[in-house]
Amino acid sequence: MSAQMSQKSMLGRRVMLGAPLVVLAAAGGGWALMLRRMAGGNFDPHSLPSQLIGKKVPDFDLPGLNGGAGITGAELQKPGRTMLVNFFASWCIPCLEDAPMLNQLAKTGLPIWGITYKDKPADTEQFLSQHGNPFGRIAVDLPGRVAINWGLYGVPETYLIDASGIVHWRYAGALTQRVIDEDLTPLLHRLGA
């Protein structure tokens, strides 16, 4: 009788002392999942979500490049069609990779507006003449303050705004064919652009 009892309590204690093992299994499983997703490219501990998703862009008024038309917040808060806004700079190296992708997108008829970040207009001009100009309009943010209001943390960054002015998507870094095919294109289809 007592031997049976102690057998039972022994099992209970084994279960209890197995708790650290359960904790380890959970932690290890989590790590494994993170490593797998990181290797697959869909888990980046350094990425940062945009606060603008689901909202309208903030108010601002920026002058255009070399006397061209500028961009205001009001225009982007009700653009009337789905469009992209791209922050870029001539000094930014990933922007070189970004340029052909934007050119390719512009050819599909998607309107893209550009905002230069802390870039001298002359340098921007040269950058555009060298790498193509996919932008319908270009505004200049020399002090970089409007960018901060958007929550920008580097260049290039690309924002997708729908016809009613809601930001649906933000991509930080140079666009790649994979990102366009897997993220952007389906979104554009959903928005009916």
């Binding site: 204690r13 279960v15 002392l17």
Partner: peptide, 12 residues
């Protein structure tokens, strides 16, 4: 994991 398994089994 091996050591914790052994722990759960043998520590009682």
């Amino acid at each position: 994991g091996g050591s914790l398994l052994l722990f759960a089994w043998r520590a009682p």
